[in-house]
Amino acid sequence: MVHKITLTVNGYKRTVEVKDNELLLDVLRDKLKIKGLKAACWRGECGLCTVLLNGKLVKSCLVLAVEVDGSEIVTVEGLSRDGELTELQKAFIEHGALQCGFCTPAFVLASHQLLLENPNPTDEEIKEKLSGILCRCGTYYEIIEAIKSASNFYRKKQR
């Protein structure tokens, strides 16, 4: 059966036809062309397909598209506005928190959510929140540095 579902993706309403067995990951990437979303395991281990689904981080390879009709989804593309990088994204670049870059969208998105919830995280809190995402290049140290240096902006935002 084909369902017409409506999602708010990065602030825009998108209506798309999906089959019962289509995964949110594939619908976002292949039908809505949200290419910041990556995948490396397709079974919930690598975390590269992480999206914000109604304000919560979830791995979109384990979600049916039809399940989330009416939901709000944010991907890394939804963080910056008008082509200007966010302070967090700039911090990732400045601290070298990426090598091949394949995991970077997921780490940026999850770090963003982490800082929204906790704008003053300890190393341990960062590690706990980000351990669901894999980086083989080994940029974990730089990611922690980037998050800490950008945390200032989230604290300001909160005030």
């Binding site: 981080l57 979830v58 791995k59």
Partner: peptide, 9 residues
């Protein structure tokens, strides 16, 4: 259990 992102679901 697992990781914090999986635990959300």
């Amino acid at each position: 259990a697992s990781d914090s992102i999986i635990r959300n679901r």
